[in-house]
């Protein structure tokens, strides 16, 4: 490592080396993204060809085979080859089975950046508004889940009884499909007058506490026997051992499990928005899209969720980087 750095330095300074390292990291990412987009466009053709041919026929074009019933039973790939003139139409439909990447991109822009430019960022048609609704439930749920997860882990590590009593239940809780339990949580809380943000946040918390518990149990137990013996030779108490050794040792595990917990919290919030009747949020947007066959809207909402998750996990990653570096624990 040091030798490489030295050699680079001799060749053109640290800046050049940094740029080279960045481009070395960028190239594989760009290649993979390009491959996915290319594959996506290819997949659009057979997915959308039947609808495209139907529309072309209505517009007066001659299609092979001419009978709609025959086309229904024909293989999509065969149809593509027999009607290659109409391939272009598969990328521009209003309600495609599989929207093309540029259609999704356009919809994303129309419902975010364009809305901002027109000063309607928080209109009900704006994805920013829906993302904000989902984000608030996600962050609140994540906070509850993380606090609960850490508290459980502390209990499990320090108490034999909790270790044996809580862990099986924590694992069992995650084997229940969230889709089954989410409507029940919403209905039960609604019947006692709690609506809106809290029920969704609780579903998020339900999903996100688990990775935090598992990660923190492992992290708090990560100091080896020698480290614990050392503190015993100082007659350190359990709480001193916790604050001075166990907690700092668990930090790398804490951040890793928070990243998983954050992604799980977002899924929980989206699922929590579905049974409420599609009022607001990315989940509502997904559901509304599927009610009305708005595939482009569904995909745009999916991408908005993915971008949101990436940003949230990225923020935790950045905090992790700074914290561990300042703690001298960066790897």
């Amino acid at each position: 490592m040091a030798d490489v750095a030295l050699a680079n330095h001799a060749r053109g300074g640290a800046v050049g080396a940094g740029l080279r390292r960045m481009s070395a990291a960028l190239v594989p990412v760009v290649v993979v993204v390009a491959a996915i987009i290319a594959l996506w466009y290819v997949a659009c053709v057979p997915m959308n060809i039947k609808e495209a041919l139907t529309q072309a026929e209505r517009a007066g074009a001659v299609i092979d085979p001419p009978s709609a019933i025959e086309r229904r039973d024909a293989s999509a790939i065969g149809l593509v080859f027999r009607n290659s003139d109409h391939i272009g139409a598969t990328f521009g439909q209003e309600r495609p089975r599989l929207p093309a990447p540029h259609q999704v991109g356009q919809e994303l822009w129309n419902s975010t950046g364009d809305m901002v430019l027109r000063g309607r960022a928080f209109s009900k048609r704006s994805l920013i508004y829906h993302a904000w609704v989902t984000l608030s439930a996600t962050v609140l749920g994540f906070a509850i889940g993380t606090v609960a997860g850490v508290a459980l882990a502390v209990g499990i590590v320090h108490s034999r009884v909790m270790n044996m009593a809580v862990m099986p239940w924590a694992i069992a809780s995650q084997t229940i499909p969230i889709l089954a339990i989410a409507p029940m949580i919403i209905v039960v809380l609604n019947s006692i007058g709690i609506t809106g943000l809290i029920p969704k946040a609780l579903i998020s918390a339900y999903l996100s506490f688990f990775p935090v518990t598992v990660g923190m149990v492992k992290g708090l137990r990560s100091p080896d026997a020698m480290q614990l013996d050392l503190l015993r030779t100082y007659s350190a108490s359990q709480s001193e051992t916790f604050w001075k050794l166990r907690l700092p040792s668990s930090m790398p595990y804490f951040f890793t499990s928070m990243k998983i917990g954050m992604a799980a919290a977002l899924v929980g919030a989206i699922v929590g928005e579905m049974p409420t009747g599609a009022v607001a949020g990315l989940g509502a947007r997904l559901l509304a899209g599927s009610y009305y066959g708005q595939t482009i809207q569904i995909w745009a909402a999916l991408f908005a969720a993915a971008i949101l998750a990436a940003v949230l996990v990225g923020i935790i990653g950045a905090i992790q980087g700074v914290t561990l570096k300042r703690m001298g624990m960066a790897r």
Binding site: M226, D229, L230, T233, S235, L245, P248, M327, G328, M329
Partner: peptide
């Protein structure tokens, strides 16, 4: 004797805390 801080113990590994 331990409570009276009679001894210091040195282990095979230095075991210094990396965050300190």
């Amino acid at each position: 004797a331990r409570r009276e801080r009679a001894y210091g113990y040195v282990f095979q590994a230095a075991g210094l805390y990396p965050w300190r």
